[in-house]
Computed example of a mutant assay.
Amino acid sequence: MRIRIRILVAAATLSLLQACGGGDDDATPAPAAAPYKTLSGAAPLVIGHRGASGELPEHTLAAYERAIARGADFIEPDLVLTKDGVMIARHEPMLDDTTDVATQFDASRKTTKLVDGVSTTAYFASDFTLAEIRTLRAKQARAGRSTAFDGLYEIPTLAEVINLAQTEGAKAGRSVGIYPEIKHSTFHKGLFGANVFEDKLLATLHPIYGNSASAPVFIQSFEVSNLQYLRTKTKIRLVQLIDADDVKDDGSMSLVAPYRQPYDFVVSGDTRQFSDLLTSSGLDFVKTYADAIGPWKPYLVKTVNDQVDRNGDGRITINDRRVDGSTGVIEMAHAKGLMVHTWTFRDDASGYGFADPKAEMQYYMKLGVDGVFTDFPATGVVALKGL
């Protein structure tokens, strides 16, 4: 009787295991699919491009604060140096388009300098002390955006941007990272000496964030040799930016100077173009010094001109191109251990093949990008939540 009971119990147990999908070999359930196709499986980052620059003048504390309030994970200060060597947040070394410098200083303060091989006459930050910069006020630089806030905000230093990120992050109960870009490293090298800019940046970052790959910091540059130098000095994550000037009718990238190559390549005689850094061998090269790539978004998707007015503006332009999936750059970069952060998404400028800015960002997020730069962080947050 006891033997029969044991047999019945064993049979029942076997039946239960079979109903659940099998025996010991597959008793452990299959792992759930990662919710995101990013390198780490974590949610893609929303990066406030020059702050919430779609709402307020770029690179101001007000724009950065707005980006944080909108939910940005990181805020991006582009950096240039003043005459006395202070890092300030400006998109370019030239102050003309983003400040009221022309109303504050006589035209005699303009100078002519070579910027990435282009002779440029302007008011340069490097010709003004920080005390003089403090007298300036920011203005809207992008056509079609509100000028109601022109003249209200000062030009901040990197130290002030960091303080804001930490203070506002603490108020929000979350970490807010910074994503500084070293602007025109070769240009600044000619003015201040080799790696002075890079050393100043690390001298500011290390005491605050530590020399750590886990710090909420990315350092980005369109040049290469400065990132290679930084790799020997810091564990903070580095990002190689990849530029182009336009997209051709056939969907290929247009590469015309000064957007053809990293400018330090031009100076050194290296013939590689930006696009070469996105090949398999190019990514292997980038991996020797960087943790991520930052390509302009058209590098990441295939586009086709099928003569459909997708954005409804009554014209057929490059912005109406149909998007037909990934070019493979994201997947190849991930396979080599590189993150992919792409730029720039704007509510008031239709992206290639998209009329809806939220849908555009979602498309790239679904492909697996690890971060998106956007002038409108609120839209980026909504896009992420809607995946």
Rank of each mutant, 00 (worst) to 15 (best):
R6M: 13
A10P: 02
A10E: 06
A11Q: 02
T13N: 00
T13D: 01
L17T: 14
D24I: 11
L45I: 08
I47W: 10
E55S: 11
P57I: 05
L61W: 07
A62C: 04
A62M: 08
I68N: 12
A69V: 10
G71D: 14
A72P: 08
I75Q: 08
E76L: 08
L79G: 00
L79Y: 02
G85F: 03
G85S: 12
M87P: 09
M87Y: 03
M87E: 10
R90Y: 10
H91Q: 07
T98N: 01
S108V: 15
K110S: 11
V115T: 06
E132P: 06
A141E: 04
A143P: 12
D150L: 07
Y153C: 06
L164K: 04
Q166D: 09
E168W: 14
G169T: 09
P180T: 04
H184T: 08
K189Y: 05
L201M: 08
L202N: 06
H206R: 02
H206T: 15
P207M: 08
N211W: 09
F222A: 00
L227W: 10
K233N: 05
K235V: 01
R237F: 00
R237W: 00
M253I: 15
A257V: 05
V266W: 00
V266E: 00
S268V: 01
D270A: 01
R272F: 00
F274R: 02
S275P: 04
L278T: 07
T279Y: 07
G282K: 01
V286R: 01
T288D: 03
A290Y: 04
I293A: 04
K297R: 13
L300W: 02
G312I: 14
D313Q: 08
G314Q: 06
T317C: 07
T344D: 07
R346M: 09
S350R: 15
G353A: 09
G353Q: 11
A355F: 15
A359H: 13
E360I: 08
M365F: 15
T374V: 05
D375I: 01
P377D: 06
T379Y: 01
G380P: 11
G380Q: 12
